[in-house]
Nucleic acid binder design. Structure first.
Lengths: 339, 339
DNA sequence: CTGAAAGCGCTAACAC
DNA sequence: GTGTTAGCGCTTTCAG
């Protein structure tokens, strides 16, 4: 019933052809130094000739190491995560690893089952931008039970003892809000994200910045959304308020872009009528209706750092105290805030 | 040196605990029907209790089947491909497959080595949006040599005997150009893509439409680009021509978006000064500076269809004549062409 | 430097 | 229904 694929060349075949043992060939393949120069030559020649490729499944089983790392993100369509994925791949490929990317669709249950699949596939390590609600930590416990190295990215879980790479979300929220204040805005609305460290941190930063500037926090100015579609809806709610906000700070670029659409549709100009800020500096930010001011989170760097830490953890027996890397956010002022 | 992960529960452990053979447990795990009801209960209970997860590496080696399919795309950051990837994942997951996604960076050599990696990993099948130049077919030969099912998407290679799922690129080029002509444009420029079926097909469609409309083909109106950055550059060249084009048709949405940026920067209005069209209907198309008219390629459908065909091919021994699925493009008229 | 022995965790095929 | 035998293709360990 299953499709029959042609038998690939095996170590055994090469060994037989050359009258050497399988072991010797294996050693050559892996580049071990304890093989005679001439034998090595002959083996190498035959390998090239037959275009031998080691069977990684067999190798993984025997070596108890797959050289696969798992990555779980909430949404590959969000280019912030696509960029992280790219950063991870780029960092990890040269080291011989492959990455299996899974999409949790921002759903804790889906994520949980993806983790199980990845564990069953015997990945050597895991990187996750987790969509777990803060109180549910069983996913992480299952990973720890296997004593498998993993690193958290983007969303932080302070109770979980694992390395974390991400931005300082409160700093991001503060930076964005301060920029808006500096642009002369006083009625600053916020499209807040999900109740994860990213959403909460940015919201806190927003409130802190208002506080510092002596602007009273106005509850109705905070609404929730996660992507461009819900950002659009959220902005329409905000536009009905009076006094109408003079700025909208979206928790990520998609929500901000969605908000822009709603604002322009309402016949209000950006930035003169309402200023808009996002977070993420996604690839197309400066191609949007009005080039979007945003906070750059250095997504590629996050990916690379996470990959780095993970690979080091895989390579070393003892688990060191988990490292936390906070990448510095950077303001990118564009036209949507009047620059 | 390698990180020591905890020994996971094995079939053997369960068998020992329950005084049954490994085989029996294996059968229960796989849902075979030839197991006594009571035995099955006991085994299931213990499985749940210990949270047993089959080791897929061992399973793959023994069953000669990994339930992994490989996907190669030129660029995950291009949301057209991200969407395809998502469509494939969604279609294939419920069937028990995982997808390993590789980025070829639009580079034939990278792609070639990715294919080898995937083969070494013993994937059950391959889906590729290939970046091979039309004359280099050795990658496909290597896959065929292993007798591994694969399906081509987006970019077509007529010499390769494999299923193909994609759009009718000539129809796309014609549709876009006809739309522009219908909008009253006569000096229609084209930012053509790479010399693959997508780029060539759309270019041909463009020329065919001009022909039909009795508009002379004007060589300088065709320039080349692949993404937003090069599309921007390409458009700047076009803007220097005289007579200046009154429309620009980009071979994909990113090039069109880049072109829009250049046009607006030059102080020319869209659509009144120059009309713009893209292809792909990427997610953010209607959030761009001027909402972008485009041709929808139904990327998710492409992914699902391809997944479908591949899975069927994996499941059946004999190779049937390769199926070709052409998904119908659809015009999405937005503001950039005056609608 | 080379190789024989043993086994990774599981499944296929066939006996009992 | 259940269990036995024999690997899958490779690496680990250790003896020569």
């Amino acid at each position: 019933m299953a499709h029959t694929s042609n038998p690939a060349v095996r170590l055994k075949d090469i060994a037989r052809d050359l009258n050497v043992s399988v072991m010797t060939v294996s050693k050559v393949v892996r580049g071990c130094s304890d093989v005679g120069a001439e034998t090595r030559q002959r083996v190498m020649a035959r390998i090239k000739e037959l275009n031998y490729q080691p069977n990684w499944v067999a190798r993984s089983l025997a070596a108890r190491r797959t050289f696969i790392i798992g990555l779980i993100v909430p949404d590959l369509m969000h280019s912030f995560f696509a960029e992280i994925a790219k950063g991870i791949s780029a960092a990890i490929r040269p080291l011989g690893y492959d990455v299996v990317i899974c999409n949790s669709e921002e759903n804790a249950a889906v994520e949980s089952s993806e983790v199980d699949r990845l564990l069953a596939r015997q990945v050597d390590g895991l990187i996750l931008a987790s969509a777990q609600p803060p109180e549910t930590l069983s996913v992480f416990e299952r990973i720890e039970a296997r004593n498998l190295p993993f690193v958290l990215i983007d969303r932080r879980f302070s109770e979980v003892r694992a390395p974390y790479v991400g931005a300082d979300d409160e700093a991001i929220g503060r930076m964005a809000t301060e920029h808006l204040i500096a642009c002369g805005c006083r009625r600053i609305a916020h499209i807040a994200g999900p109740k994860l460290t990213t959403g909460i941190g940015r919201l806190n930063g927003y409130r802190a910045a208002l506080d510092t500037a002596g602007i009273a926090f106005h509850e109705p100015y905070v609404v929730h959304a996660t992507d461009d579609a819900s950002g659009y809806d959220a902005a329409r709610l905000l536009l009905r308020l009076s006094p109408r906000p003079d700025a909208i700070f979206g928790y990520n670029d998609p929500t901000a872009a969605g908000a822009m659409k709603a604002i322009l549709e309402a016949g209000i100009a950006i930035p003169s009528g309402i200023k808009v800020m996002g977070v993420g500096n996604v690839h197309y930010s400066d191609l949007l209706r009005v080039p979007l001011s945003t906070i750059d989170q250095r997504s590629t760097a996050i990916g690379q750092q996470a990959a780095d830490i993970l690979v080091k953890a895989i390579g070393s027996k003892r688990k060191r105290p988990p490292r936390t890397v906070i990448v510095e956010p950077a303001l990118v002022a564009r036209e949507s805030t009047g620059h």
